[in-house]
């Protein structure tokens, strides 16, 4: 692993990265990322964004043969969507609900005076009917509510900016990031076949970029008492796999994850398969920022200097200005 980071960063400036915090510091110093004003929030440079978009295009190409319906979801979702996804019960520590002010004249004067005085004003706002998107595919299921899928199921390609409240100095753990997903809705065997097929496609796609990936069984970070019961259940039933690679240090993390939800969303949103049974769903999500970080860690901070094979796959031309923007 040390070999990987040495080689990658050696091409850029000869300095090896030893920790996620150091990697973060270099990304900020070089201007690839810009501090977003709170821990774990970042603005992206044109260079960073161009890599993200190249990865998106590569993933999209990998699913073209399935002619998925493509949707770009809003980063803000209805509370009913968040609730229906089951995310509130399972991960209340990660959600982001949105507050706004709805007070009368007197409350408004109080709010302004608190703001002017640098006091506590957030407590004067109240919850709205919207929240931040928890996962790209969560917006899909309510859209399909009370529908029956055709024979062979339906395949979607979706993307959204997602939010997880887990402030960290590790750039691999951004609070706001994009998930590019392929989702199947249909029968149970169809969902499993899709999951297996896309794990292989994901392995080929990310392995082809030379990321030194591994595919491992995984479980979600459920919250609170009962978390272990849910995690073990997920592992026992092999519902979740992650494609892992070093992202911000030698420690591997998930750059993509594949989930078989069984009938969780089908039951929650009244989705039926072609046989009239509760639909089963499966998805694979590519973490666009994480894959970008993994490439920068492995291959160096200047994409123009990346190996020709990788540049060709990502359509990064040598003519592109190598100066970081």
């Amino acid at each position: 692993m040390s070999n990987l980071t040495k080689r990658g960063l050696g091409e850029s400036d000869g300095r090896a990265i030893t920790s996620a915090e150091e990697f973060r510091s270099r990304l900020l110093t070089l201007g690839l990322l810009v501090d977003g004003g709170a821990i774990g929030l970042y603005h992206r440079s044109a260079t960073f964004e161009s890599i993200v978009r190249s990865i998106e295009a590569l993933a999209s190409k990998a699913g073209r043969d399935q002619s998925p319906r493509q949707l770009y979801f809003s980063p803000v979702i209805g509370l009913a969507t968040l609730l229906g996804s089951g995310y509130v019960s399972a991960f209340p520590n990660l959600i982001g609900t949105i507050n706004s002010f709805d007070g009368d004249g007197e409350a408004l004067r109080e709010l302004r005076s608190r703001v002017d005085a640098g006091g506590q004003w957030v407590e004067m706002t109240s919850p709205t009917e919207v929240a931040l998107c928890s996962a790209s595919c969560h917006s899909l299921y309510p859209m399909l509510a009370h529908t029956t899928q055709p024979e062979g199921g339906s395949i979607f390609e979706v993307q959204a900016s997602c939010f997880r409240h887990e402030p960290s100095l590790d750039p691999a753990r951004m609070q706001s990031f994009r998930q590019h997903e392929f989702v199947y809705v249909g029968t149970a065997p169809g969902a499993l076949e899709f999951r297996d097929q896309w794990l292989e496609r994901g392995r080929a796609l990310l392995g082809g970029l030379g990321l030194g990936i591994d595919v491992v069984p995984a479980s979600d970070p459920f919250f609170g008492r009962g978390a272990q019961l849910l995690s073990r259940g997920q592992l026992d039933k092999e519902l979740k796999f992650e494609i892992v690679a070093p992202i911000s240090s030698t420690q591997p993390g998930a750059v993509a994850s594949s989930n078989y939800h069984e009938d969780h969303f089908g039951a929650a949103f009244d989705l039926k398969d072609a046989n009239g049974q509760v639909a089963h769903t499966a998805c694979i999500g590519f973490g666009l920022e994480r894959i970008t970080l993994a490439l920068l860690l492995k291959l160096g901070f200047d994409p123009a200097l990346w190996p020709g094979g990788v540049r060709q796959q990502l359509d990064i031309s040598v003519e592109r200005p190598s100066a970081l923007s």
């Binding site: 019960s89 009962g226 019961l229 259940g233 969780h264 039951a267």
Partner: peptide, 11 residues
Amino acid sequence: LSSHASVNVML
């Protein structure tokens, strides 16, 4: 019995 319901049963 779903996984999530089993947690509520457990509690």
